[in-house]
């Protein structure tokens, strides 16, 4: 990994601004969703106050092991984001992010509660569904630019999407799974009277649950970064504005999809995600070999 001053700026910015922006985005998400459903919705800072309240709750847990795994989850999510915004190797980012995902699954298993264990199984199915497409993003990036380095993208004459348009479409499809949004919010059923209570997080409470929420904020910012990766080029301020605009547009689309599609079974998620990866990936790699 080559370090430059921008690597440090990127990493520090993500560490500090990540949760702030993530909290705002979570609030805006709820506001926009409420609008789409004809409700007023909570205040924009509601997610922040929710986490503040969780921090003040009594310390209680079903066992000590799950707390450790949640801490590891938070740590690796943050670490992968730091490497990403420092412009590091994208494959390294993906692998560390997967390591984080594994510890969330381990935390859910560790509680040995039927509800969170089922959530953990479903989370594994989610990872298995999106993993091929995410690896294809890395492969497409490598084959198009000759490098896995994220920092390299800011030196491109034309953005990545010019080379890997189909992989971008496929990525947007699995982004819904990664963000755990409907129709693929299988491991995180949102409503209190669902049979799953709330999937993987059923047995987390207080500070541990707050940590999971903060991890999600970090994660969401990183995933927006992954989306932005397709749109960036060496175009100075114009490029910066376009990149942020594209990321926000995709994020808005995700909210729209979330509010307009009912949850599907995991079989449908796995099959469609793999078919999308197979078709988009194969076609796009063949295209890359010919240009």
């Amino acid at each position: 990994m080559q370090f430059s001053i921008w690597s440090f700026v990127g990493a520090i910015a993500f560490l500090v601004l990540g949760p702030v922006l993530g909290a705002f985005l979570a609030g805006a998400d709820r506001k926009i969703s409420a609008g789409m459903q004809g409700r007023v919705g909570p205040k924009i800072l509601q997610p922040y106050w929710d986490v503040r309240k969780l921090m003040e709750k009594e310390d209680a847990t079903v066992n000590g092991a799950q707390d450790l795994f949640v801490k590891l989850y938070l740590f690796f999510v943050v670490l992968s984001g730091v490497f990403f915004f420092a412009g590091g190797n994208f494959l390294l980012v993906v692998l560390i992010q997967t390591l984080g995902a594994l510890f969330l699954i381990a935390a859910a298993y560790a509680s040995r509660s039927p509800y969170s264990e089922l959530g953990a199984e479903r989370e594994i199915a989610q990872v298995m569904s999106y993993e091929p497409m995410v690896l294809l993003v890395a492969i497409g990036m490598y084959m198009a630019t000759g490098s896995f380095m994220v920092s390299n993208l800011t030196t491109l004459d034309v953005p990545l999407i010019r080379y890997i348009p189909l992989i971008f479409i496929g990525f947007c499809y699995v982004l819904t799974i990664k963000l755990r949004k409907s129709p693929f919010d299988i491991s995180m059923a949102q409503h209190a009277h669902q049979e799953l209570v709330r999937g993987v997080v059923t047995e987390f409470s207080g500070k541990t649950l707050a940590m999971v929420e903060v991890s999600h904020w970090y994660e969401n910012i990183m995933f927006l970064g992954w989306t932005a990766m397709f749109a960036v080029w060496a175009g100075g301020w114009v490029a910066a504005v376009v990149t942020v605009a594209v990321a926000l547009l995709i994020w808005f689309l995700e909210i729209w999809v979330d509010n307009n599609f009912a949850r599907v079974k995991w079989q449908a998620m796995l099959k469609t995600a793999w078919i999308v990866a197979l078709v988009c990936g194969t076609a796009n790699i063949v295209y890359l070999l010919f240009i």
Binding site: N63, A65, Q66, F69, T98, L102, I105, A106, A108, Y109, A110, S111, R112, E117, A120, E121, I124, A125, V127, M128, S129, E131, P132, L135, L136, I139, W274, A277, L278, G281
Partner: peptide, 22 residues
């Protein structure tokens, strides 16, 4: 890429199973 996803599936569930804790 598909083989890697399948690999994650069968290891992760075993990993989780032995860490469950009552």
């Amino acid at each position: 890429v598909f083989g890697s996803a399948a690999t994650f599936m069968f290891w992760a569930k075993w990993f989780g199973k032995i860490l469950s804790y009552a």
